[in-house]
Design a binder for these strands. Structure first.
Length: 356
DNA sequence: AAGACGGGGTT
DNA sequence: AACCCAGTCTT
Protein backbone atom coordinates (compact mmCIF):
# COMPACT_ATOMS: atom_id res chain seq x y z
CA UNK A 1 0.00 0.00 0.00
CA UNK A 2 1.34 3.42 -0.93
CA UNK A 3 2.35 5.32 2.15
CA UNK A 4 0.39 8.49 2.71
CA UNK A 5 3.61 10.46 3.18
CA UNK A 6 4.80 9.36 -0.25
CA UNK A 7 1.78 10.83 -1.93
CA UNK A 8 2.21 13.61 -4.42
CA UNK A 9 1.39 17.07 -3.10
CA UNK A 10 -2.36 17.29 -3.79
CA UNK A 11 -1.90 20.78 -5.23
CA UNK A 12 0.68 19.64 -7.76
CA UNK A 13 0.01 18.50 -11.34
CA UNK A 14 -0.47 14.77 -11.73
CA UNK A 15 -1.64 14.20 -8.16
CA UNK A 16 -4.80 12.20 -7.57
CA UNK A 17 -6.60 15.45 -6.69
CA UNK A 18 -5.42 17.13 -9.88
CA UNK A 19 -6.66 14.22 -11.98
CA UNK A 20 -9.97 14.02 -10.15
CA UNK A 21 -10.50 17.74 -10.74
CA UNK A 22 -9.71 17.36 -14.44
CA UNK A 23 -12.20 14.49 -14.66
CA UNK A 24 -14.79 16.60 -12.81
CA UNK A 25 -14.32 19.47 -15.26
CA UNK A 26 -14.86 17.09 -18.20
CA UNK A 27 -17.82 15.15 -16.90
CA UNK A 28 -19.49 17.34 -14.29
CA UNK A 29 -23.02 16.22 -13.58
CA UNK A 30 -25.66 18.93 -13.68
CA UNK A 31 -27.59 18.76 -10.44
CA UNK A 32 -30.33 21.12 -9.23
CA UNK A 33 -28.26 22.37 -6.29
CA UNK A 34 -24.96 22.62 -8.13
CA UNK A 35 -23.77 26.01 -9.35
CA UNK A 36 -22.63 26.56 -12.92
CA UNK A 37 -18.87 26.32 -13.47
CA UNK A 38 -17.18 29.40 -12.07
CA UNK A 39 -20.28 30.61 -10.22
CA UNK A 40 -20.55 30.77 -6.47
CA UNK A 41 -22.85 28.25 -4.86
CA UNK A 42 -25.62 29.62 -2.62
CA UNK A 43 -24.91 28.45 0.95
CA UNK A 44 -28.63 27.92 1.56
CA UNK A 45 -28.86 25.65 -1.47
CA UNK A 46 -25.71 23.77 -0.51
CA UNK A 47 -26.85 23.26 3.07
CA UNK A 48 -30.39 22.19 2.11
CA UNK A 49 -29.13 19.70 -0.48
CA UNK A 50 -26.48 18.26 1.83
CA UNK A 51 -29.00 17.65 4.62
CA UNK A 52 -31.34 15.96 2.14
CA UNK A 53 -28.53 13.90 0.63
CA UNK A 54 -27.59 12.38 4.01
CA UNK A 55 -28.52 8.70 3.64
CA UNK A 56 -30.50 9.47 0.52
CA UNK A 57 -29.82 9.14 -3.21
CA UNK A 58 -29.49 11.98 -5.70
CA UNK A 59 -32.51 10.73 -7.67
CA UNK A 60 -34.76 10.75 -4.61
CA UNK A 61 -33.64 14.17 -3.41
CA UNK A 62 -34.10 16.01 -6.74
CA UNK A 63 -37.86 16.67 -6.64
CA UNK A 64 -37.86 17.37 -2.89
CA UNK A 65 -35.11 19.97 -3.28
CA UNK A 66 -37.02 21.74 -6.07
CA UNK A 67 -40.25 21.81 -4.06
CA UNK A 68 -38.51 23.14 -0.94
CA UNK A 69 -36.91 25.98 -2.92
CA UNK A 70 -40.23 26.90 -4.53
CA UNK A 71 -41.96 27.00 -1.16
CA UNK A 72 -39.10 28.54 0.79
CA UNK A 73 -36.65 30.45 -1.45
CA UNK A 74 -34.53 31.68 1.45
CA UNK A 75 -33.43 30.41 4.84
CA UNK A 76 -35.56 33.14 6.43
CA UNK A 77 -38.62 31.86 4.58
CA UNK A 78 -37.92 28.36 5.82
CA UNK A 79 -37.41 29.66 9.35
CA UNK A 80 -40.80 31.39 9.21
CA UNK A 81 -42.63 28.20 8.16
CA UNK A 82 -44.59 26.11 10.69
CA UNK A 83 -42.79 22.84 11.55
CA UNK A 84 -45.77 20.82 10.34
CA UNK A 85 -45.44 22.33 6.85
CA UNK A 86 -41.78 21.32 6.76
CA UNK A 87 -42.57 17.79 7.93
CA UNK A 88 -45.31 17.56 5.30
CA UNK A 89 -42.90 18.61 2.55
CA UNK A 90 -40.31 16.16 3.91
CA UNK A 91 -42.73 13.21 4.11
CA UNK A 92 -41.27 10.20 2.27
CA UNK A 93 -37.62 11.25 2.62
CA UNK A 94 -37.16 9.41 5.91
CA UNK A 95 -35.03 10.12 8.97
CA UNK A 96 -37.51 12.75 10.12
CA UNK A 97 -35.15 14.13 12.76
CA UNK A 98 -33.36 15.66 9.77
CA UNK A 99 -36.47 17.73 8.99
CA UNK A 100 -36.91 18.81 12.59
CA UNK A 101 -33.24 19.79 12.81
CA UNK A 102 -33.40 21.47 9.40
CA UNK A 103 -36.15 23.71 10.70
CA UNK A 104 -34.34 24.35 13.97
CA UNK A 105 -31.17 25.19 12.07
CA UNK A 106 -33.00 27.61 9.76
CA UNK A 107 -34.46 29.37 12.81
CA UNK A 108 -31.01 29.61 14.42
CA UNK A 109 -29.42 31.04 11.27
CA UNK A 110 -32.28 33.52 10.85
CA UNK A 111 -32.37 34.69 14.46
CA UNK A 112 -28.74 34.42 15.60
CA UNK A 113 -26.78 34.91 12.38
CA UNK A 114 -28.86 37.56 10.57
CA UNK A 115 -29.95 35.00 8.02
CA UNK A 116 -26.36 34.39 6.86
CA UNK A 117 -24.78 30.96 7.15
CA UNK A 118 -21.50 30.94 9.11
CA UNK A 119 -18.58 30.28 6.77
CA UNK A 120 -16.27 28.15 8.94
CA UNK A 121 -16.41 24.47 9.72
CA UNK A 122 -16.31 25.05 13.48
CA UNK A 123 -19.20 27.51 13.42
CA UNK A 124 -21.26 25.31 11.10
CA UNK A 125 -20.66 22.34 13.39
CA UNK A 126 -22.52 24.06 16.21
CA UNK A 127 -25.78 24.21 14.20
CA UNK A 128 -28.54 21.57 14.61
CA UNK A 129 -28.32 18.70 12.12
CA UNK A 130 -24.84 19.68 10.90
CA UNK A 131 -22.19 17.12 11.79
CA UNK A 132 -18.63 16.56 10.63
CA UNK A 133 -19.48 15.64 7.08
CA UNK A 134 -21.98 18.43 6.41
CA UNK A 135 -19.86 21.12 8.10
CA UNK A 136 -16.92 20.19 5.88
CA UNK A 137 -19.06 19.93 2.74
CA UNK A 138 -20.71 23.34 3.22
CA UNK A 139 -17.40 25.00 4.15
CA UNK A 140 -15.78 23.62 1.01
CA UNK A 141 -18.60 23.82 -1.54
CA UNK A 142 -20.28 27.05 -0.47
CA UNK A 143 -17.27 28.96 0.88
CA UNK A 144 -14.27 27.47 -0.92
CA UNK A 145 -12.48 26.58 2.29
CA UNK A 146 -10.15 23.61 2.44
CA UNK A 147 -12.00 20.98 4.46
CA UNK A 148 -11.72 17.21 4.66
CA UNK A 149 -15.04 15.98 3.35
CA UNK A 150 -15.65 12.32 4.24
CA UNK A 151 -18.89 10.58 3.35
CA UNK A 152 -19.50 6.97 2.38
CA UNK A 153 -18.30 7.59 -1.16
CA UNK A 154 -15.02 9.08 0.02
CA UNK A 155 -14.51 6.21 2.48
CA UNK A 156 -14.95 3.70 -0.34
CA UNK A 157 -12.62 5.53 -2.74
CA UNK A 158 -9.91 5.85 -0.07
CA UNK A 159 -10.26 2.24 1.09
CA UNK A 160 -9.68 1.06 -2.50
CA UNK A 161 -7.08 3.62 -3.52
CA UNK A 162 -4.93 2.68 -0.50
CA UNK A 163 -6.07 -0.93 -0.18
CA UNK A 164 -7.26 -0.56 3.40
CA UNK A 165 -8.30 -4.02 4.59
CA UNK A 166 -9.37 -3.07 8.08
CA UNK A 167 -13.19 -3.13 8.31
CA UNK A 168 -15.40 -0.13 8.92
CA UNK A 169 -16.18 1.46 11.25
CA UNK A 170 -12.77 0.77 12.90
CA UNK A 171 -10.97 2.04 9.78
CA UNK A 172 -12.79 5.36 9.77
CA UNK A 173 -9.98 7.39 11.39
CA UNK A 174 -7.41 5.95 8.96
CA UNK A 175 -9.65 6.67 5.97
CA UNK A 176 -10.18 10.23 7.19
CA UNK A 177 -6.41 10.71 7.52
CA UNK A 178 -5.90 9.43 3.97
CA UNK A 179 -8.65 11.73 2.69
CA UNK A 180 -6.87 14.61 4.41
CA UNK A 181 -3.60 13.78 2.64
CA UNK A 182 -5.40 13.76 -0.72
CA UNK A 183 -7.29 17.05 -0.25
CA UNK A 184 -5.90 20.07 -2.11
CA UNK A 185 -6.00 23.65 -0.89
CA UNK A 186 -7.19 25.05 -4.20
CA UNK A 187 -10.70 24.35 -5.51
CA UNK A 188 -11.70 22.61 -2.29
CA UNK A 189 -15.40 22.48 -3.15
CA UNK A 190 -14.90 21.12 -6.65
CA UNK A 191 -12.50 18.51 -5.30
CA UNK A 192 -14.96 17.33 -2.66
CA UNK A 193 -17.68 16.96 -5.28
CA UNK A 194 -15.24 15.26 -7.66
CA UNK A 195 -14.37 12.48 -5.20
CA UNK A 196 -17.98 11.97 -4.21
CA UNK A 197 -19.03 11.87 -7.88
CA UNK A 198 -16.36 9.30 -8.69
CA UNK A 199 -17.58 7.24 -5.75
CA UNK A 200 -21.21 7.52 -6.83
CA UNK A 201 -20.76 6.84 -10.54
CA UNK A 202 -17.47 4.91 -11.06
CA UNK A 203 -16.10 3.59 -7.77
CA UNK A 204 -19.50 2.06 -6.94
CA UNK A 205 -20.08 -0.47 -4.14
CA UNK A 206 -20.83 -3.27 -6.64
CA UNK A 207 -19.27 -3.71 -10.10
CA UNK A 208 -16.99 -0.66 -9.98
CA UNK A 209 -16.19 0.71 -13.43
CA UNK A 210 -12.42 0.65 -12.97
CA UNK A 211 -11.78 0.74 -16.73
CA UNK A 212 -13.03 4.33 -16.93
CA UNK A 213 -11.66 5.51 -13.57
CA UNK A 214 -9.44 8.59 -13.89
CA UNK A 215 -7.10 7.35 -11.14
CA UNK A 216 -7.12 3.59 -11.68
CA UNK A 217 -3.35 3.55 -12.28
CA UNK A 218 -2.83 5.01 -8.80
CA UNK A 219 -5.20 2.52 -7.17
CA UNK A 220 -3.58 -0.07 -4.91
CA UNK A 221 -6.83 -2.00 -4.50
CA UNK A 222 -8.08 -2.18 -8.06
CA UNK A 223 -7.74 -5.99 -8.22
CA UNK A 224 -9.96 -6.44 -5.15
CA UNK A 225 -12.02 -3.26 -5.43
CA UNK A 226 -15.42 -4.91 -5.03
CA UNK A 227 -14.40 -6.40 -1.66
CA UNK A 228 -13.50 -2.98 -0.21
CA UNK A 229 -14.23 -1.40 2.12
CA UNK A 230 -14.72 -4.36 4.45
CA UNK A 231 -17.46 -3.95 7.03
CA UNK A 232 -18.18 -5.53 10.33
CA UNK A 233 -21.17 -7.89 10.10
CA UNK A 234 -24.43 -6.31 11.19
CA UNK A 235 -26.92 -7.92 13.58
CA UNK A 236 -30.09 -9.18 11.95
CA UNK A 237 -33.36 -7.34 12.38
CA UNK A 238 -36.13 -8.59 14.66
CA UNK A 239 -39.76 -8.45 13.51
CA UNK A 240 -42.29 -6.42 15.48
CA UNK A 241 -46.02 -6.79 15.06
CA UNK A 242 -48.90 -4.44 15.64
CA UNK A 243 -52.48 -3.57 14.75
CA UNK A 244 -53.35 -0.33 12.96
CA UNK A 245 -56.91 0.95 13.32
CA UNK A 246 -58.71 2.41 10.32
CA UNK A 247 -61.47 4.19 12.17
CA UNK A 248 -64.27 5.62 10.02
CA UNK A 249 -67.08 7.97 11.00
CA UNK A 250 -70.48 7.76 9.20
CA UNK A 251 -69.59 10.88 7.17
CA UNK A 252 -66.44 9.16 5.88
CA UNK A 253 -63.89 10.97 8.06
CA UNK A 254 -60.96 8.84 9.27
CA UNK A 255 -59.09 9.19 12.55
CA UNK A 256 -55.41 10.22 12.41
CA UNK A 257 -53.09 11.20 15.21
CA UNK A 258 -49.77 12.95 15.51
CA UNK A 259 -46.83 10.92 16.82
CA UNK A 260 -44.79 12.26 19.70
CA UNK A 261 -42.12 14.80 18.84
CA UNK A 262 -39.10 12.58 19.42
CA UNK A 263 -38.29 9.03 18.45
CA UNK A 264 -39.39 6.94 15.50
CA UNK A 265 -41.28 8.97 12.86
CA UNK A 266 -41.38 11.80 15.39
CA UNK A 267 -44.01 14.44 14.72
CA UNK A 268 -45.48 12.59 11.75
CA UNK A 269 -49.16 11.64 11.30
CA UNK A 270 -50.55 8.09 11.46
CA UNK A 271 -53.69 6.05 11.79
CA UNK A 272 -53.75 5.05 15.49
CA UNK A 273 -52.14 1.69 16.19
CA UNK A 274 -51.26 -0.65 19.02
CA UNK A 275 -47.74 -0.78 20.39
CA UNK A 276 -45.40 -2.64 18.04
CA UNK A 277 -44.10 -5.66 19.94
CA UNK A 278 -41.45 -8.24 19.15
CA UNK A 279 -42.31 -11.15 21.38
CA UNK A 280 -45.99 -10.84 22.23
CA UNK A 281 -49.41 -10.53 20.67
CA UNK A 282 -50.25 -6.90 19.96
CA UNK A 283 -53.17 -5.20 21.68
CA UNK A 284 -56.36 -5.14 19.56
CA UNK A 285 -58.37 -2.49 21.43
CA UNK A 286 -58.91 0.70 19.37
CA UNK A 287 -58.42 4.11 21.09
CA UNK A 288 -62.13 5.06 20.79
CA UNK A 289 -65.43 3.32 21.37
CA UNK A 290 -66.49 1.49 18.21
CA UNK A 291 -69.67 0.01 16.70
CA UNK A 292 -67.81 -2.80 14.98
CA UNK A 293 -64.27 -3.93 14.21
CA UNK A 294 -63.22 -6.08 11.22
CA UNK A 295 -59.69 -7.30 10.49
CA UNK A 296 -58.86 -6.68 6.82
CA UNK A 297 -57.35 -9.41 4.68
CA UNK A 298 -53.57 -9.22 4.40
CA UNK A 299 -50.96 -7.20 6.27
CA UNK A 300 -48.78 -4.16 5.73
CA UNK A 301 -45.04 -4.85 5.89
CA UNK A 302 -42.35 -2.26 6.25
CA UNK A 303 -38.69 -2.37 7.18
CA UNK A 304 -37.05 0.26 9.34
CA UNK A 305 -33.36 0.67 10.07
CA UNK A 306 -33.31 -1.83 12.89
CA UNK A 307 -36.52 -3.90 12.72
CA UNK A 308 -39.13 -5.33 10.37
CA UNK A 309 -42.73 -4.32 11.01
CA UNK A 310 -45.82 -6.38 10.23
CA UNK A 311 -49.14 -4.63 10.74
CA UNK A 312 -52.66 -6.06 10.70
CA UNK A 313 -55.28 -3.46 9.73
CA UNK A 314 -58.59 -3.38 11.59
CA UNK A 315 -61.48 -1.50 9.99
CA UNK A 316 -63.62 0.13 12.70
CA UNK A 317 -66.86 2.10 12.55
CA UNK A 318 -67.88 4.65 15.17
CA UNK A 319 -70.89 6.82 15.99
CA UNK A 320 -71.15 10.18 14.23
CA UNK A 321 -70.54 12.17 17.42
CA UNK A 322 -67.33 10.36 18.42
CA UNK A 323 -64.73 12.83 19.68
CA UNK A 324 -61.12 12.62 18.52
CA UNK A 325 -58.74 11.80 21.41
CA UNK A 326 -55.89 14.12 22.41
CA UNK A 327 -53.37 14.57 19.53
CA UNK A 328 -55.85 13.00 17.09
CA UNK A 329 -58.27 14.47 14.56
CA UNK A 330 -60.84 13.46 11.96
CA UNK A 331 -59.75 13.84 8.35
CA UNK A 332 -61.88 13.53 5.22
CA UNK A 333 -60.32 11.43 2.45
CA UNK A 334 -59.93 14.41 0.10
CA UNK A 335 -57.66 15.99 2.74
CA UNK A 336 -55.33 13.02 3.25
CA UNK A 337 -52.87 14.79 0.96
CA UNK A 338 -52.45 17.54 3.56
CA UNK A 339 -51.10 15.10 6.14
CA UNK A 340 -47.41 14.53 6.88
CA UNK A 341 -47.56 10.79 6.27
CA UNK A 342 -44.37 8.73 6.26
CA UNK A 343 -44.14 5.86 3.79
CA UNK A 344 -45.32 3.12 6.14
CA UNK A 345 -48.45 5.15 6.95
CA UNK A 346 -49.16 5.71 3.25
CA UNK A 347 -49.03 1.93 2.86
CA UNK A 348 -51.69 1.61 5.57
CA UNK A 349 -53.89 4.20 3.87
CA UNK A 350 -53.55 2.44 0.51
CA UNK A 351 -54.30 -0.94 2.05
CA UNK A 352 -57.38 0.32 3.91
CA UNK A 353 -58.78 2.26 0.94
CA UNK A 354 -58.30 -0.70 -1.40
CA UNK A 355 -60.01 -3.09 1.01
CA UNK A 356 -62.68 -0.74 2.25
C1' DA B 1 -18.95 3.18 22.18
C1' DA B 2 -23.27 1.68 20.76
C1' DG B 3 -27.81 2.18 19.29
C1' DA B 4 -31.71 4.86 17.15
C1' DC B 5 -33.27 6.60 13.08
C1' DG B 6 -36.31 5.55 6.72
C1' DG B 7 -36.40 4.52 2.45
C1' DG B 8 -34.80 3.26 -2.01
C1' DG B 9 -31.88 0.45 -5.01
C1' DT B 10 -29.83 -4.04 -6.38
C1' DT B 11 -29.64 -8.85 -6.69
C1' DA C 1 -37.46 -11.37 -0.15
C1' DA C 2 -32.90 -10.55 1.35
C1' DC C 3 -29.27 -7.66 1.31
C1' DC C 4 -26.79 -3.12 0.81
C1' DC C 5 -26.13 1.66 1.71
C1' DA C 6 -24.87 5.45 5.58
C1' DG C 7 -24.66 11.03 8.66
C1' DT C 8 -26.27 12.86 13.11
C1' DC C 9 -27.99 12.65 17.56
C1' DT C 10 -28.82 10.38 21.85
C1' DT C 11 -27.73 7.50 25.53
Amino acid sequence: MPKAQELADPDSPGSAADRLLAWYDRSRRRLPWRSDPGECADPYHVWLSEIMLQQTTVATVGPYFQRFLEKWPTVEALAAAPLDDVLHAWAGLGYYARARNLHKCARTVASSHNGVFPDTEDALLTLPGIGRYTAAAVAAIAFGRRAVVVDGNVERVMARLFRVGEPLPDSKPALTALADKCTPTARAGDYAQAVMDVGATICTPKRPKCTICPIVDLCAGRDIAETLPARKPKPQKPTRRGVAFWIVRPDGAVLFRRRTESGLLGGMMEPPSSDWVADAEPETAPPVETIDQTPLVGTVRHTFTHFHLELAIHHCRVEGDTEAPQDARWVMPDRFGDLALPTVMKKIVRHAMKAG
